[in-house]
Every structure is written in structure tokens, then in C-alpha cells.
Amino acid sequence: MGGFFKSSIGRKVAMALSAFFLMFFLIIHLTVNMTSVFSADLFNELSHFMGTNPLVQFALQPVLLFGVVFHFVLGFILEWKNKKARKVTYFKNNGAANSTWMSRNMMYSGLVILAFLVIHFADFWVHEINVKYINVEPADPTRYYHELVEKFVPIWRVVAYSVAFILLGLHLGHGFTSAFQSMGSTAGRKRALQNLGKAYAVIIPLGFIIIALYHHFNHH
């Protein structure tokens, strides 16, 4: 299989496989976050489990980190290679005539998501590591809900958060069906996958944005 992943198609498949993993992760993340709208206790309970369970912490979390880094790094490498494949660019190019904006700008929607992840990691992941391993604080299984809500108090955070998720929606709007196409999905499933992809690309970002708006307007 080594030769396979060195080929252009193998790399597409690798991008698709990491995308599937990340898209599955988004469903889990949204589900956990959504509980914060309905029950602070349930959200705290789930967050505490995620933050302390050894399987999640030492097996799934490294896999997730690897998946995120892999998808970004391979995406950048492929973008760079693709740029090299056309040394002289067109004087006039009408890209909108034959493809969607989101399909042509996965790199830019990806960069916005990357910028979001930097803030996201600084806010939550660095904080978690600090509290748990560096400046160890006594375990407080009820702190998570307040940590979440206070992030959505400043309006600039809610706006930046919403923009990032709209860009994620555009990334998924192309990425969902693209991943299936790369995996060799058959023609018969095309329509169903396109509809499923549209639904997924709207529901996931909208869910996160609704949670942000809910906490902003309920606690300010």
C-alpha cells in the first residue's frame, strides 16, 4: 500500500479519510456542546468525562490531534503542488463559470478554520493542560459550563466564532461530497450524497452558532 499513498489519487484518499474522521468528530463535538443549552449539569458531566477519561485523553485525543494536523499539512502540500502544476497563470480566468466559490477556495476557508483553531486551542486546550498538569488546581467537575459561557459574553468573540463557522460550512459544503468522490463513490449515490452533504454543511455550523448566540443573549 506504500506506493498507493505516494500517488496523486492515494493522497486524495488520505485527505478524504482524515476528512471523514474530522467530520465524525464534529458531530460528537456539536452533540456535547448542544447539551449546554439544555442542561448545565449534563454538559459538566460530559465535559468532565471527556477531560478525565484515560481512553479519551491518551488514546482518542492524540489521534484527533494527528488527524487535524495531518489534514492541514497534507492540504497545504497538495495546494503547493497544484500551484506548481501551472507556472504561467491565465490573463483572464472565469472560474465562476464552471465551479463553485467554495470548491475553488478550500485553502482559504481552511485557513480561517485554522486561525479559529489556534484561538480555540489557546482558550480551552492550553487552559486544560495548565489546570491539569502544570499549575494543578483541585478538580472541579462543575467548572466547564462557566468556562464555556464566559467565552461567549464578548460580542467580538461571538461574531468571530460565527464567521469561522460560516467558513467551516462553506468548507464542508464542498468537502463532504468531495471526500466521497475521492473514495470512489458510485454514480447512483450521487444525488443522495449531495443532499446529505448540504444538510451536514448547514446543520453543523448552524448548531455551533446557535449555541454561541444562546449563551451570549442569556448571560449578558
Binding site: S7, S8, R11, K84, A85, N98
Partner: peptide, 21 residues
């Protein structure tokens, strides 16, 4: 596929522009 890669063509990102044109 190996020859295609060797020739220096880029990687498909499924924009679908080729199919339209």
C-alpha cells in the same frame, strides 16, 4: 496514474470544472 503524476499534472480537488467544460 504513475505516468500522469510523472508528467507534472496537479491533484484533483473535485471542483467539477472539467466536467462542465
Amino acid at each position: 496514474v504513475a505516468q500522469m503524476d510523472l508528467e507534472g499534472f496537479g491533484n484533483c480537488t473535485n471542483t467539477g470544472a472539467c466536467e462542465i467544460e
